[in-house]
């Protein structure tokens, strides 16, 4: 018994090492004063952190990424919220098919999706880079929005909506005064998860970006193609922190929604 537990402990240790090791190495390496990444670092310096803000294409691509992710998020929410509601509340023909279509972007490899969109949508309709990026990112966010909101709707008793109807509220009024406040945390979680998905996306963006316009992860890729300094490690550390904060919020929201369940 004891033996087995020790084996399991060792196993867990290696999993964590495997998962977190690279992150720790990157974090340390980001403080390297020299112009090449080293582990362990030969000193301590924040100059590569400073460098992030001096490279102008990081700044512009960061803004592009944020804008595309936010605007795409809004679009995906406007499409996804009614879709999630319809899929979880009504029975209709073709529901299963629609479900599959909304989920498919998660299942299809990003490269395939990106290439297909480029060839059959972007080029066919000759869309400008920004619109292309927006469409692409809306498409990849939609499944996350729909799935997270649908799961939070599934935890919400339909009878509560009926109670509202029977008390005299119309369908729309019921949606806004009764449904929405109760799936609020689910919606926020959906938006954050989708945001992370979009912000980190490379495989779709790579087909949509054009000369002079690029997203942040793409810019990072371009940067490491030509530079070997620890700037990229510094960026990674900042992104990790950013992601950790978002994940923490998501965890709190989804966790809370478990407690409010009867």
């Amino acid at each position: 018994m004891r033996q087995k537990n020790r084996g399991l402990g060792l196993f867990t240790f290696f999993i964590y090492l495997f998962l977190l090791g690279p992150l720790v190495i990157i974090a340390f390496a980001s403080f390297e004063p020299g112009s090449a990444m080293k582990f362990p670092p030969q000193g301590f310096s924040l100059k590569w952190y400073q460098n992030i803000f001096e490279v102008s294409m990081f700044k512009t691509s960061f803004i592009t990424s944020i804008l595309v992710s936010l605007a795409g998020n809004l679009l995906a929410l406007l499409l996804g919220l009614p879709a999630a509601y319809a899929l979880s509340r009504f029975q209709f023909r073709g529901k299963a098919a629609l479900n599959a279509i909304f989920i498919s972007p998660v299942l299809i490899p990003g490269i395939v999706l990106g290439f297909t969109m480029l060839k059959y949508v972007i080029i066919t309709y000759n869309l400008p880079v920004y619109s292309a990026l927006l469409i692409g990112h809306t498409v990849i966010m939609l499944p996350f929005i729909i799935r997270v909101i649908a799961s939070s709707l599934a935890n919400f008793d339909f009878a509560v909506e009926e109670a509202s109807l029977s008390l005299g509220a119309g369908r729309l009024k019921t949606f806004f005064t009764v449904v929405l406040p109760n799936i609020k945390s689910g919606i926020i979680a959906a938006v954050l998860i989708a945001f992370l998905e979009s912000f980190n996306n490379v495989d779709i963006s790579v087909f949509m970006t054009g000369p002079g316009i690029s997203t942040f992860p793409i810019q990072m890729l371009l940067y490491v193609e030509n530079n070997f300094d620890p700037t990229i490690a510094a960026i990674s550390v900042l992104l990790m922190l950013f992601t950790a904060v978002l994940m923490f919020i998501i965890e709190r929201l989804m966790g809370l929604s478990y407690f409010t369940k009867r």
């Binding site: 008793d157 509560v160 109670a163 509202s164 406040p181 109760n182």
Partner: peptide, 13 residues
């Protein structure tokens, strides 16, 4: 009409 549900269906919020 007033409807009273088996699951009470109170507004949780």
């Amino acid at each position: 009409f007033g409807f009273v549900f088996q699951s009470y269906a109170l507004f949780p919020h």
